[in-house]
């Protein structure tokens, strides 16, 4: 309720009239893409590589660069998780997504640590290797995207040593591959595809998501309940994580998704200061009994900054099993990093 005595009643009344009209940013982005397409700003470039533009969930060991491979903390229960997620949602709502000026690019970067296993007479070598994936998304999303994958050569032994690797003929050089594809369809799909999914969200798919957190949760539940998958609720967090890590969800959709995740019965805060490549965030987790999946959110901005998987049973209990960090910023041109 508003006290109207303090200023012009008419202006307040006008402000309140039909003030509940909402602007759906995903729809605006669709309109934008269609408009720019129609006015011919979109360059048509060659077909890209066979890689997907989303990062497949790394079924691999990984480590926290500069952090710890071992995590034992369990800092909160689901009520606290809900409150913190709601707070993160509010922070997102208060910070609109950066607008990419024509000619500039959204610059998305993932640092992923994957495991490589090599059979040797001594019982095999297991090593973690870092890959950096960079994607440049044009101001007109339907334009040409650019992608660079760099195996940095950084590695850490889980089982083995540099000496054993040398004997086995394994080296850790730096190598880079580049590709480009219209509208991020590096391997089909992408934002311009007619169909989409949590793993590969298209603009149309995003626009069709429920706007109400509870309804979005129901959708997540429907899509995340997979026959033969016994991860239960944890799979729902994985689905949400898949979509968040693409960097394609607009701020209002991310905010609704955070609130939707608050409906997970077993969601917990597992780490209030998870360190992902130097970015500190709150880790929200769901445990399926063998490992817990975590999404990490910066409490100051509400930004999704990465994911982890931590073993919760067996020999590796407490160890980080997989890890990736994510950042987004604005770059002046393809292949250029932000100044």
């Amino acid at each position: 309720m508003t006290d109207l005595r303090s200023s012009d009643d008419l202006d307040r009344a006008l402000s309140a009239l039909h003030a509940d009209a909402e602007t759906d940013s995903a729809r605006i982005q669709q309109t934008r893409a269609a408009f720019l397409d129609a006015v011919g700003q979109t360059p048509v470039k060659k077909r890209g590589s066979r890689r997907r533009w989303v990062i497949a969930a790394a079924a691999a060991l990984a480590l926290v660069a500069g952090g710890s491979l071992y995590t034992t903390t369990l800092a909160g229960g689901s009520a606290e998780a809900k409150v913190e997620l709601d707070d993160a949602a509010q922070r997102i709502a208060a910070t609109p997504d950066p607008v990419v000026a024509p000619g500039k690019y959204r610059y998305l970067v993932w640092h992923v640590w994957n495991t490589n296993y090599t059979e040797t007479p001594g019982g095999g070598l297991r090593v973690l290797e870092e890959t950096v994936i960079e994607v440049w998304v044009p101001a007109n999303i339907r334009g040409t995207w650019y992608r660079r994958d760099t195996d940095t050569g950084r590695h850490q032994w889980i089982k083995g040593s540099n000496e054993e690797a040398r004997k086995a003929g394994i080296s850790f050089g730096r190598s880079t591959t580049t590709s480009s594809a219209r509208c991020g369809a590096f391997d089909g799909g992408g934002p311009c595809a007619k169909n989409g999914s949590w793993q590969d969200p298209s603009l149309d798919w995003i626009a069709g998501l429920p706007k109400d957190p509870k309804a979005l949760f129901e959708q997540l539940k429907k899509d995340g309940t997979i026959q033969g998958n016994d991860r239960g609720e944890t799979e729902l967090l994985v689905k949400a994580q898949d979509a968040l890590r693409t960097g394609m969800l607009p701020a209002d959709v991310r905010a609704t998704l955070y609130r939707a995740l608050g409906n997970l019965e077993n969601l917990k805060i597992s780490d209030k200061a998870a360190n992902l490549d130097g970015q500190i965030g709150i880790a929200y987790s769901s445990d399926d009994g063998s490992s817990r999946e975590e999404i990490v959110i910066d409490p100051k901005t509400g930004a999704y900054i990465g994911s982890r998987e931590v073993a919760t049973s067996g020999r590796n209990r407490g160890h980080v099993l997989s890890y990736s960090s994510f950042t987004t910023s604005i770059a002046p041109a393809p292949w250029k990093t932000p100044r």
Partner: peptide, 24 residues
């Protein structure tokens, strides 16, 4: 560069314009 200029105008005006029209 006219398409770029229109992209800029869209970014600047589309969302508030939508809200204005949605209220109407």
């Amino acid at each position: 560069a006219v398409a770029d200029e229109f992209a800029r105008l869209f970014d600047q005006h589309a969302a508030p314009m939508h809200r204005y029209l949605a209220r109407r």
